[in-house]
Every structure is written in structure tokens, then in C-alpha cells.
């Protein structure tokens, strides 16, 4: 049985369709990435799956419970970490954990163990509002796995967190997944996407790609070449808009040139008279391509 299995989720706010016919499957124990630009409907999707929003259309099951009728059971077995820190800043770390433990009916040991795991025992009486971004994130994660959920939904958990804390956070996620926990995590960092078992890419409310990182890149059917040049700005301007060239992205002194038709792309590069060599298409190239495509579809 899949942990998440939803079909045709649709949600509008006013006249704006924020999520449009999104279907999603997440298998037990996997880390599923939920990717997409800002405002693409990731948060709304997650909220619908954990019972915080009622979909306008669509149906499905989370942990075997109907998302329209059994929100309460879902809430009991899901750990949901909100995008914005949403514990009480005017409560201490311990008071926050006590509050959560109380709501889930956990024994007092749970709070003590969590404080120890976090390494926060000595700072337990500090107000949550005075914690740094990284610590707030660790506190929030600890609070939402305290009741031993079977599914974690993390909404951009690493926004505003430094690289070291991010690395540690992802190590922790992999450890939890190894213990059998299923994780759905939304992000717009490409390096984080690559740490997921499978990714789902959503743009403008529509699911436009899904699969493993390799599959998504392959399915995009893009050819990428790198161009070594000492005048990247000039060459980029020259190449942009040329037939066959879809994207030109400067990386220091090299340019990544991407297009769907390799022959046309090579012709354009020859025309420009620059040295080029074939290269791997990155996830970022694919995402920018997907985003532009769905934007075209919207207008």
C-alpha cells in the first residue's frame, strides 16, 4: 500500500486556481521531493493532504485514510512541519514540547528524550523565539516526530538555514527514512532535490514531471553543451534567442547552453564560432525548462 495516493487534487482561492489536478503517489519508506518555484502550490497541496485544507475536487488516501473524511486519523499519524516556524515563540523549548506531547497524549519521558536527542537539555528553558533559524528548525522537526508519525510532511524545512545545518538536517531525514518513515519534503533547492529518492515537480499548480532524478532529466529530452569563453556576457547575448537554443546560463567563464534539438543547437554554436563540448544536463536546466514551458501553457 502506498503511503500517499491522491488523485486530481484541485484548489482555488477566489478565482485563482492554485492547485490544478495534481495526482501524487509516495511509496512507503521513500523520501519524496516536492519541487517547484515559489507560489506553485506546494504548500496548498501539502495542506490538503494533511487535512488542513479541503480540496475543491479530487480524492485520495494518506496512510490509508480518506483525505476528505478522516482528517483526524491522518493528523494523528502525520508529522507536519510548517514552512514558517509555528511553535510559540513566547514559550520555552520545553514548554513547547510539553504542549505537543500533551496534545498527542505522550508520556513525559518523550519530552525528556527529545530534549536529549536534540542536545537542548541545557537550553530547555530558553524561549523558542530567541533561537536561531537552524535551532528553530531542529526544534520544529523534533516536535513533529515526537509522536512517532508514519509520514512526515516537511514544507520547505531548510529555508533560511545555513549549509552546515542543512546538511545535518538531510542526514537526519535519511536516518528517519532508513527506520521506515516516509517523508514528503518540499524545497526549491536543486541540491536537496538530488537527495530525494523520487521527485515531483509542480509548476503553476500542475504536476509537470515526476520520477527519480535520472528519469526526470532523461524525460526532459534536453541536450546541454558547455562553452568555454573569456567573454561570457557577449557570447551569451549572441546565443540567446538563436534557433535551437532554449537556455543560456553563465557559470563563471563557462556557459551552459541547452536545447531540445541537438542538431539545431550545434548549428547555432557553430554559427557563433565558439568552442563547445557536450555536457550533462542538470536538474536545474530541466526545471527552468519545465517552468518556462508551463508558463507558456498558462498564457
Amino acid at each position: 500500500m502506498n503511503v500517499i495516493e491522491v488523485q486530481g487534487l484541485t484548489k482555488s482561492f477566489g478565482t485563482r486556481k492554485v492547485v490544478d489536478d495534481v495526482s501524487l503517489t509516495v511509496e512507503k519508506g521513500e523520501i519524496a521531493g516536492f519541487l517547484g518555484p515559489n507560489g506553485s502550490g506546494k504548500t496548498t497541496c501539502i495542506r490538503m493532504m494533511c487535512g488542513l485544507l479541503t480540496p475543491d475536487a479530487g480524492h485520495g488516501r494518506v496512510l490509508g485514510h480518506d483525505i476528505l473524511r478522516e482528517q483526524r486519523q491522518i493528523k494523528l499519524q502525520v508529522g507536519y512541519m510548517t514552512q514558517k516556524f509555528s511553535f510559540y515563540e513566547d514559550l520555552s523549548i520545553r514548554e513547547n514540547l510539553n504542549f505537543v506531547a500533551g496534545l498527542y497524549g505522550l508520556p513525559p519521558d518523550a519530552v525528556r528524550d527529545t530534549l536529549e536527542d536534540l542536545g537542548l537539555t541545557s537550553r530547555r528553558d530558553q524561549l523558542a523565539g530567541s533561537l536561531s533559524g537552524g535551532w528553530k528548525q531542529r526544534l520544529a522537526l523534533a516536535a513533529c516526530i515526537m509522536h512517532k508519525p508514519q509520514l512526515l510532511m516537511l514544507d520547505e524545512p531548510t529555508a533560511g538555514v545555513d549549509p552546515k545545518a542543512r546538511r545535518e538536517f538531510w542526514d537526519e531525514i535519511h536516518e528517519l527514512s532508513a527506520r521506515g518513515l516516509t517523508v514528503l519534503v518540499s524545497t526549491h533547492y536543486m541540491d536537496e532535490a538530488e537527495r530525494c529518492h523520487r521527485i515531483n515537480y509542480i509548476a503553476y499548480g500542475r504536476l509537470v514531471a515526476h520520477g527519480t532524478v535520472g528519469q526526470v532529466i532523461r524525460d526532459a529530452g534536453l541536450a546541454t553543451y558547455t562553452v568555454e569563453t573569456d567573454r561570457p556576457g557577449l557570447v551569451a547575448r549572441q546565443l540567446a534567442g538563436a534557433p535551437g537554443v532554449d537556455q543560456v546560463a553563465p557559470f563563471g567563464t563557462t556557459l551552459h547552453v541547452t536545447g531540445t534539438d541537438p542538431a539545431a543547437l550545434e548549428a547555432a554554436l557553430r554559427e557563433a564560432g565558439v568552442a563547445w563540448q557536450p555536457s550533462e544536463t542538470s536538474l536545474e536546466d530541466v526545471f527552468i525548462r519545465l517552468m518556462e514551458q508551463s508558463q507558456d501553457n498558462m498564457t
Binding site: 495542506r47 483526524r72 502525520v78 507536519y80 514558517k84 510559540y88 515563540e89 496534545l103
Partner: peptide, 13 residues
């Protein structure tokens, strides 16, 4: 206003 409502609702109360 403080954004804590979302978390409160996500928990079983």
C-alpha cells in the same frame, strides 16, 4: 496572526 494556528490545527485538538 502569529502563524501558530496552522500548527495547532495540524495537531489533534
Amino acid at each position: 496572526e502569529r502563524g501558530t494556528m496552522e500548527n495547532l490545527l495540524a495537531m489533534p485538538a
